[in-house]
Design a protein around this nucleic acid. Structure first.
Length: 465
RNA sequence: GGCGGCGUAGCCAAGUGGUAAGGCGGAGGUCUGCAAAACCUUUACUCAGCGGUUCGAAUCCGCUCGCCGCCUCCA
């Protein structure tokens, strides 16, 4: 099956064809580590994790680069206020970010470069632009002259307009020939971190970081560049301009942008104060995989309105699949297999893959899982599921988990002996028809996140997520 | 003002010409010591509104209304 993805550049969905052999080279604009990331940020990273896993699912080799930006205005301001070095300060939030990634099961990209370790590449790139006449200097800073790049605006569909929007005045404009020009190298300011380079003392502008790091690790032309929807303009537009001006070659072939997480109809953001952090939600008792599920379940090009109710719905949906797996595992080895169900399982897998192949339509992919769950539950009700069916379905769910990684498919063990003892005690109490004690124990375990369900074959337990 | 997008059941959400996937929730039932889980039945004659094209439209076209994002640091 052919994997198709949208590109902001062409505004069309098209088949993914690697530039080199079977390998996809992909760059994701990562976080700036001046604070804890909020789950709006993580929506993007979860979605591009799905992309990463989808590419692998469809058999591509992958080299994925995601930066961790460790120098910018915010970082400088905050680290100074905290009386810490840049490195001391950013280390805290970089580590927090990596931990949060793990909690959300976001796979580590192959390379996670940091700008402060790539200053040479950036300077080299700017020097190349300077040689080719794309830059000018003003008050110690180096700027990119967009008039020299006729294709400027092709990503954001900006026609080169005469009139600029009223009221959008860049505070630096008096330094620039054209308000749209952007800074490549910022002149040193007293008290701020700087690097001594042939461009003069200073630090890199925001946009040059991603160009330099992506091209250093992936080459001047690579397959996919992704980021949040707010990066289309100016960040990615500027990356294209400076990269293509420097190399004379196309930069990223395909651009993917993840839409925003909304809160009450407004973009979740630090400045609006309407944000939730991962840690905050975990403290409230929400399950990280339910959060991952919620962030993954809505298509990346649609805004997702985040609510706690939505998170609870996601939790329930996930629990349904996990409960199904527990029940499926109880299929006796001697039962007869059901050929019709085998066929249904293959169909479900095909629909799952079709959904993913269609620009990562996660809703369709997940619907394929849920349909199979319902149909199989009905058959389980009538003992029409055999061990072969069970294994085929578990195999399909594992495949789905290669991409989504939210379902609990491995059998869980009770390592807590106290809980094991209580379950046994309850079993004895029920045999004596001592339902008072029985219910008491069930309540006790519920408080510890373990639910008990009595079936004809005995009592089963499960962890509540 | 320019650019991009959205509006489908109580909530989330798929569906881009052929007669409304899936999830959550609600109601009734089966099962159960009671629960829980699961299953069964039910919950949009209709897709923001109004026109148009078509044998046929949630899907195409036009207009109207409402909402969001980018154009400024931002995932």
């Amino acid at each position: 099956m052919k994997l198709k993805l949208y590109s902001t550049l062409t505004q069309q969905v098209g088949e993914v064809v690697p530039l080199n052999d079977n390998e996809i080279r992909m760059y994701t604009c990562g976080p700036t580590v001046h604070d804890y990331a909020h789950i709006g940020n993580f929506r993007t990273f979860v979605q591009f994790d799905l992309l990463r896993r989808t590419l692998k699912y469809f058999g591509f080799a992958l080299k994925h680069v995601m930066n961790i930006t460790d120098v910018d205005d915010n970082i400088i301001t905050k680290s100074t206020a905290a009386n810490m070095t840049l490195k001391e300060y950013t280390e805290i939030y970089a580590n927090a970010f990596l931990e949060d990634m793990e909690t959300l099961r976001i796979q580590r990209p192959e390379v996670m470069p940091r700008p402060t370790e790539h200053i040479d590449s950036m300077v080299e790139l700017i020097m190349k632009l300077r040689e080719k006449g794309f830059t000018y200097e003003s008050e110690g800073s180096t700027y990119f002259r967009i008039d020299r790049f006729p294709e400027y605006g092709k990503l954001a569909q900006l026609e080169r307009r005469q009139g600029e929007a009223v009221g959008r005045i860049d505070t630096d404009r008096y330094d620039k020939e054209n308000p749209r020009d952007f800074v490549l190298w910022k002149a040193r300011k007293p008290g701020e971190a700087y690097w001594d380079t042939p461009l003069g003392p200073g630090r890199p502008g925001w946009h040059i970081e991603c160009s330099a790091m992506s091209m250093q690790h992936l080459g001047s032309t690579f397959d996919i560049h992704c980021g949040g929807a707010d990066l289309v303009f100016p960040h990615h537009e500027n990356e294209i301009a400076q990269s293509e001006a420097a190399t004379g070659r196309p930069f990223a072939k395909r651009w993917l942008h993840c839409e925003f997480l909304m809160v009450n109809g407004q973009k979740m953001s630090k400045s609006l104060g309407n944000y939730y952090t991962l840690r905050g939600l975990l403290d409230k008792g929400y399950n990280p995989l339910a959060i991952r599920y919620l962030l993954a379940s809505v298509h990346y090009r649609k805004q997702l309105n985040f609510t706690l109710e939505g998170l609870e719905q996601a939790t329930a949906a996930l629990q349904r699949v996990n409960d199904f797996v527990i029940r499926l595992r109880e299929v006796p080895g001697g039962a007869e297999d059901n050929p019709a169900l085998s066929q249904r399982t293959r169909d479900a897998r095909a629909r799952f893959e079709e959904g993913l192949a269609d620009d990562m339509n996660t809703s369709v992919a997940l619907a394929a899982v849920f349909e199979l769950v319902r149909e199989t539950n009905t058959l389980l009700e009538n003992n029409q599921v055999g061990p072969g069916n069970r294994d085929e379905i578990l195999d399909f769910l594992s495949a789905a988990n290669q991409v989504f990684d939210v379902f609990q498919i491995e059998e869980q063990k009770l390592e807590d002996q106290e809980i094991v003892r209580l379950i046994e005690e309850r079993r004895e109490a029920r045999m004596r028809r001592d339902f008072r004690r029985s219910d008491e124990i069930r309540q006790l375990l519920a408080e510890r996140g373990v639910a008990l369900e009595d079936t004809k074959e005995g009592t089963r337990w499960k962890r509540v997520i």
